[in-house]
Design a protein around this nucleic acid. Structure first.
Length: 440
RNA sequence: GGAGGCUUCGCCUAGUCCGGUCUAUGGCGCCGCACUGCUAAUGCGGUUUGGGUUAAUCCCCAUCCCGGGUUCAAAUCCCGGAGCCUCCGCCA
């Protein structure tokens, strides 16, 4: 939800933002009208309630003979209040509808246009060259015994998979690396629920246009999250945070579930686009004035993570028409996928300014001690399945083995290569004693 | 799944049986002022959160977990829901 005061004071800027998104700018005027209606209705109902309260008190003080008349008057006012409150409710609902219809105000500097108009800010790392025919991540995964799509489909259907052997170990290695780096950077690590109540889903803006993307557990009126952003934002709903020591940062781990409705035929091979994956998500609460700077910090942490994995990538500034409802600005990092000969989205970070926090009522105390709406930001540190896909492809060798970046080695038994048929018993992690020599 | 208890303005708490200056009690904490070599102690005052109105103040309305209902009037009575706790059952 955007700030109503801002809409009142700068309707032209909000209209421009709507146009930049390719959305209807007349919604702004509808919102302003609904706001005026509501305030009129509230004023009328308040005045009537005030009169009725006085009348009601008069009933108590009335003499025996004056009482019937006073009571009559109080009853009449009560009826009027009832009507006025009905009108107030209607005006409230109309305002809410108009309010929810508006997406966040696009930040200054966001490129105009739609999906194809993202601006590449920089390209980092060399696109690798291979002197052998490259395999896609599924072929490599199958050679390594790391990915099993067929059995995933047998058990759960299309777009489900098993990570097996080295694939499973890779998941944990990535999780450890991501969480460790986040903790070192000052994030509070969080294991977040993947099943949330409607308020959290709605507050983060996922029941609007993304409604079709979301799994709903009807029986219990719960939703499966598409990202731990939902649980992390919901964590502090209806709270006043202390942000005097700087942004409050969380690194959340959870499974993520997406119906992928409307993506039939897209990325059907492998684990790039799946109904379920695990993810380490960064989430930050900060004063709105710091949000843009915080956004760049999240982006930097994302870049450092990919650099540690030795993955070539580019950073793109998403155009206004392609922003999510809650985002004022969004940067994606796209990593190189050799089998596709192109960069594909691996992580994404959004500055939601006060849009989510206003809905969720997440506030902080400013220097003067007043409560203000906080800003929220989110960024992927590691979406595991897709990252594994990218790693396998980029670091593949002619013989089907895969180079392990040094950053991951501590959790993969120190190995420099994952090789088809390798013994997993040798792939121990820190804290695990070396396997005992076989006794016979 | 079953039974019972609980939820009050940052924290604790009175009030709920029996509806009406509850415009919510008291303590702690916090803020201001006074007093005092300093600190402490003490005294006085303030201290929920939203909304409406306003240049600002004043004022008005709402708010006792949430949503309905009864009533001239609801923290208080009735119905529905949520959360927490205890016990039983089941379960990793």
């Amino acid at each position: 939800m955007i700030d109503l005061r801002y809409v009142r004071e700068h309707p032209d800027l909000v209209r421009a933002s709507q146009r930049a998104r390719g959305a209807d700018d007349s919604l702004v005027d509808a919102l302003i009208a609904a706001d005026a209606d509501r305030r009129a209705a509230v004023g009328a109902a308040d005045d009537l309630r005030s009169a009725q309260k006085a009348a009601s008190l008069a009933v108590r003080g009335a003499s025996a003979e004056g009482r019937p008349a006073v009571l009559e008057r109080a009853k009449a006012l009560a009826a009027q209040v009832k009507d006025a409150e009905e009108a107030e409710r209607a005006a409230d609902a109309a305002l809410r509808t108009a309010h929810l219809a508006l997406a966040n105000v696009v930040a200054d500097g966001v490129p105009p246009g739609g999906e194809d108009d993202a601006v590449t800010l920089r390209t980092v790392g060399e696109v690798p060259e291979y002197d052998f025919p490259v395999r896609d991540h599924l072929e490599i995964g199958e050679l390594l015994g790391a990915i099993d799509m067929e059995r995933g489909a047998k058990v759960s259907g299309a777009r489900f998979y098993f990570l097996t052997g080295p694939g499973a170990l890779l998941e944990f290695a990535l999780a450890q690396l991501a969480i460790s780096r986040a903790v070192a950077a000052g994030f509070t690590p969080v294991v977040a629920p993947a099943l949330v109540r409607p308020e959290a889903m709605e507050g983060t803006g996922f029941l609007g246009e993304h409604d079709e993307e979301v799994y709903r557990v009807e029986r219990d009126d719960l939703y499966l999250v598409g990202t731990s952003e939902v649980a992390l934002a919901g964590m502090h709903m209806n709270e006043v945070l202390d942000l005097s020591a700087g942004p409050r940062r969380y690194a959340g781990w959870s499974s993520c579930f997406r119906r992928e409705a409307g993506s039939y035929g897209k990325d059907t091979k492998g684990i790039i686009r799946v109904h379920w994956f695990d993810k380490v998500e960064m989430f930050s609460f900060c004063p709105p004035a710091d949000a843009a700077a915080e956004h760049l910090r999240l982006l930097q942490w994302e870049e450092e993570f990919l650099t540690a994995l030795e993955l070539p990538y580019r950073v793109v500034d998403i155009a206004a028409g392609d922003l999510g409802t809650s985002a004022a600005r969004k940067f994606d990092i796209e990593a190189w996928f050799p089998s596709q000969g192109t960069y594909r989205e691996l992580t994404s970070t959004s500055d939601c300014t006060t849009f989510q926090a206003r809905r969720l009522s997440i506030r902080y105390r400013d220097a003067e001690g007043r409560t203000q709406v906080a800003a929220t930001l989110n960024g992927t540190l590691c979406a595991v399945a897709r990252t594994i896909a990218c790693l396998l492809e980029v670091h593949q060798r002619a013989d089907g083995s895969v180079h392990v970046p040094p950053a991951l080695r501590p959790w993969l038994g120190g190995h420099e290569l994952l090789t088809p048929g390798m013994s997993l018993a040798a792939v121990s992690g820190p804290g695990v004693p070396a396997p005992a020599a076989p006794t016979r």
